[in-house]
Design a protein around this nucleic acid. Sequence first.
DNA 1: AGCAGAAATTTGAACGATCAAACTCTGCGT
DNA 2: ACGCAGAGTTTGATCGTTCAAATTTCTGCT
Lengths: 334, 334
Amino acid sequence: MAKAPTVEDVAAHAGVSRQTVSNVLNTPEIVRPATKERVLEAIDALGYRRHAAARRLRLRRSSTIGIRLDPYVGGISGVVLDRFVHAITEHASERGMRMLVYAARDTDEELARLSELWEGSEIDAAIITGTFRDDPRVGHLDAEGLPFVSFGRPWGEDDIADPRHLWVDVDGAAGTRAATQHALGAGGHVTFFGWPSGSGTGDDRERGWQEAIRDAAARGGRLIAEDSVPQARAAMEAALSAGLETDALVCASDSLAVGALLALADARRVLPVIGFDNTPTAEALGFSSVEQRPEDVATAVLELLMGPTGDVVAPRRLEAGSAHALIAPELVVR
Amino acid sequence: MAKAPTVEDVAAHAGVSRQTVSNVLNTPEIVRPATKERVLEAIDALGYRRHAAARRLRLRRSSTIGIRLDPYVGGISGVVLDRFVHAITEHASERGMRMLVYAARDTDEELARLSELWEGSEIDAAIITGTFRDDPRVGHLDAEGLPFVSFGRPWGEDDIADPRHLWVDVDGAAGTRAATQHALGAGGHVTFFGWPSGSGTGDDRERGWQEAIRDAAARGGRLIAEDSVPQARAAMEAALSAGLETDALVCASDSLAVGALLALADARRVLPVIGFDNTPTAEALGFSSVEQRPEDVATAVLELLMGPTGDVVAPRRLEAGSAHALIAPELVVR
DNA sequence: AGCAGAAATTTGAACGATCAAACTCTGCGT
DNA sequence: ACGCAGAGTTTGATCGTTCAAATTTCTGCT
């Protein structure tokens, strides 16, 4: 295999200089058409391709975005993140960006890795996921000057409207609201099956149910379990044997929904159950679920980072209102 | 934020030259201890970090491995690949390697993207997945000189033992053999629920069942469906109403297993069903399944690429016997 | 034809690291 | 005292690209 051709080789072949070749590639409008033609032919003839590493060094830009791939935890919920990674990879490709994935065991390790990648010009920007209250990553990355977008709202009250922090999230409340409204078709009592209070995401989803119940002047109760099938199943069993009377269940996750369905099957009862995340399990078992639309999240993330059509990471815009995106989820009825 | 320090800055601070700093980092054993000490202090004081892009250009090595992230297709089976990607990302990190993911719609696009990444020194090696008979990628990548390992055997007969092609795969037959042996505890008739013939993976899994039946002098039949829950359910329903008599089911995938379970539930029958892939759905529904051990596959892939302990992509070894790894899956009984 | 000014193109330098070769220093044997 | 080997350290060149400044070529006008 011959050595890959460089700009210099192309230049020699086309009878021009290095820089002219560079201009054809980067600022074609300043090159005379005839010259451009000749250079393009040479590029084609030699099969020239830009050497990305050299470009990086010179431009101090890598056209690469970093995203953490959490250790695989099993269970259902990781699937949403995986779908998001798939989607962002596709859309990034279309915009000429690459995705670098890295592993980290905790937030400190994540920050260390991001700093390393950023300072070594390996990434131009980062996407962080799973934000939590007073997330230290926000301040840290800001201080380093690394552009980033989070998939997930900052759950601290202060900065949720701060346009310096770019974020995209799914409107969980809208999802459970739609689910509850749909469930109310089965009767006037809809139970919310959620997680213990305290997580921003969980509280948000509960709020949607609450609002729908209130608006429809309907009735409903709350059932709580940790996010695992066995625990959900146990909680549901307990509720059923305590004489739970309800017309439908709206759940904060598909894990809870599966647990509830298993308990219902054991008790030989049938009840509409609506999950959240629209995982393959929901699809396989055929119960309704709220779809987070990771595709749309991916599109929105790139838009915040690179502008509506840009192909480089844009300097962060500071106008309020354009720094966030709240994606409306979609109820998939089965 | 001040400009990141370079080797030159460190050298000045320590009162030595560029190259000595480089030596401290790359070949510390040739530097006098006192000097090394001073340099390390300077590195620490300035917070120096190697500039990865410059290193790449000079060394023509990126310490990055590329892997395709297929478009998300939904369904259950993609999960195994995702788990593998998670695992390889973790192990690669530990060895100082990075993972670059890229999207491609088909094999041609995949090859185009890989060539681009390889020629631009963006990746040192690639991992390809989902190999099929007469896979054009093998020849193409070989011709380009890009080191690669495939997750999945080359299913053409010629090259399966060819040590020039590095591969790791899961021993599907061993998985279904174990599953069948376990299932035979429930009675002497075990049905295999598989895919239409022709796929290497599917035929391999069927073979394991076949062998176990033969070795135990037991009986069994075959049931066939495409890999989707609804089609599996329909096939199972048809079989049941045709009077299927069997003691257990060994399935080629969890999708088939779920379909079978749903049909069984409809028919109010209970039968041991063993799936394949050990997806979250199997865990959630509590049926046994064969676990592919993506962790072990990841370890094996890196070992083929980098040697047992190396931290760079090693030149390909050509000895027969050390170029492949067949991972034994594990039956998870529930 | 001559000239100013714009347009097109070329040359030199830089990005930050590492390799290869040249150089300096130390200790030892003669 | 001198030369020499070898360890330790420095200098010059290089990887492929792009920016900035310098140079050449073209265009329109008198």
